[in-house]
Amino acid sequence: MAEFAGHRPGEPAYRRLIAALFFAGVATFAQLYSPQAVLPFLAADLGVEPATAALAVSASTLGLAVAVIPWSVAADRFGRRTTMSVGVVTATAVGLLAPLVPSIGLFLAARLVEGAALGAVPAVALAYLSEEVHAGHVVRAAGSYIAGTTVGGLAGRLIAGPFAEWGMWRVGVFAAAATCAGSAALFLWLAPRARRFTPAPVRLRALGRRLRANLRSPAQLALYAQAFLLMGGFVAVYNYLGFMLARPPYDVPQWIVSLLFLAYLGGTVSSPRAGALAGRIGRLPVLLGSTAVMGAGVLLTLVPSVVVIVVGLVVFTAGFFGAHAIASGWTPASAPAGTAAQASSLYYLAYYAGSSALGWALGLVFAGSGWAGVVGAVAALCALAAWCAAAALRRGVSRR
């Protein structure tokens, strides 16, 4: 019997796998970012500053960043599908309880635990996909998974946001978690069993070697830089744009501010298209082009017009998710032999470390320099990410 080479488009198992990962993305990212839509009301209700309120997002992404490598170890031992199932079910249970706690301290602690549990999906999903999908279709399949994460991020914010206008931000966050419970159930039902996974015993020395192999690779370090810098800038824009628009001269109502997250649909469109385009012209040109689009979009938000700000946000979001689709799929594909899971884990460690650190730190920039300061900082992050990619990844392309 011929060795199984991976699922291909058109096969029922391929469709089930893509759908399962789509719902895993929804279940993960809807609850991860739902508080972002209610940050101004959370800050007012709990009596904290914008940067402190933003910790509701940063705490969960910090937990996720810390947990991705342990989850990758568990995935090597117990299987990709099993690990993701445990993580997403645990996170959903904590997510349903988090908005019920009375204080900011307890809420942040619950968000930290929730984020740590959610780490199972991004730590493992791309490794699961790269093992079970035929090599010729991994880039496009990864783009479809990233599209699911954008829908999840959008759904969580759109569900939670309108409740804040009625003074019920806790109900909104709970409703987003309930939606995630349904998506988690669909993932458990649809995800096909792994056919190319071989369990491996947990060997910490071997894990250390696999991590070091990736950390010694200039190409991998450049990809991790994309994750840290671009994600940090992306989260900061969505954290503080609502605060800016709620103030004079805009005075935009919160229910309208929550609709700004529809800009995520730009990422839903751009991520699979970026993957398909990379298959034709190469990953590096698409990565650099997407980063340039992201930078141009954030600069448009300086124009004092709500319409132009919305257009800039859509452009910014499309550019970010195009870059993320390429970088996240490139990471396990270019990892040293036998280290794909660890490469993906390190990518997401950088990704969520950027979300936590820069998503909070740019709140201090917002407090001191206003929205223009945030835009300048994010544009600089995009430029630095592009420089890292051009310097390290072009050499990797020429060597291959």
Results as ranks from 00 to 15, higher is better:
Thr331Ile: 02
Val121Lys: 06
Gly119Ser: 10
Ala236Ser: 14
Arg209Ala: 06
Gly143Leu: 06
Arg140Met: 07
Leu118Phe: 06
Leu154Ser: 09
Ala43Arg: 07
Phe78His: 12
Thr301Phe: 08
Ala327Thr: 06
Ala123Gln: 10
Ala194Asn: 06
Leu55Thr: 13
Leu299His: 02
Ser270Ala: 15
Leu260Asn: 09
Gly79Gln: 06
Ala227Gly: 13
Met231Cys: 03
Phe228Val: 00
Ala5Leu: 14
Gly359Arg: 01
His134Thr: 14
Trp371Glu: 09
Ala120Pro: 12
Pro192Arg: 11
Ile69Phe: 05
Ile69Thr: 03
Trp189Lys: 15
Gly148Asn: 13
Pro35Asn: 05
Ala54Lys: 02
Phe197Gly: 13
Gly282Glu: 11
Ala236Asp: 01
Ala341Lys: 05
Tyr352Ile: 00
Gly267Gln: 10
Ala200Met: 05
Ser144Pro: 05
Asp45His: 12
Leu17Asn: 01
Val257Asn: 12
Trp166Ile: 03
Thr61Lys: 00
Ser72Val: 08
Ala27Asn: 03
Gly376Thr: 00
Thr291Phe: 00
Ala175Thr: 10
Val86Met: 13
Ala51Asp: 06
Ala222Gln: 04
Pro332Ala: 06
Leu32Met: 14
Ser217Lys: 02
Ala120Ile: 04
Ala91Gly: 15
Thr317Asp: 04
Ile104Phe: 11
Val397Gln: 11
Val375Phe: 04
Gly368Pro: 00
Val310Arg: 06
His134Trp: 01
Gly289Ile: 00
Leu46Lys: 08
Thr90Pro: 09
Arg273Pro: 01
Gly232Thr: 08
Gly319Asp: 05
Trp169Asp: 01
Glu132Met: 10
Tyr352Glu: 05
Gly359Ile: 02
Ala19Leu: 14
Leu284Met: 03
Ser130Phe: 06
Ala391Asp: 07
Phe22Ala: 13
Phe187Glu: 09
Val68His: 01
Val121Asn: 13
Val124Thr: 15
Asn239Gly: 11
Ala385Leu: 04
Ala109Tyr: 07
Ala246Arg: 09
Ala177Tyr: 08
Ala213Asp: 12
Ile104Lys: 07
Leu229Gln: 03
Ala155Lys: 02
Leu362Cys: 08
Ala175Pro: 10
Ala19Met: 14
Val311Cys: 09
Val252Cys: 11
Ala343Trp: 05
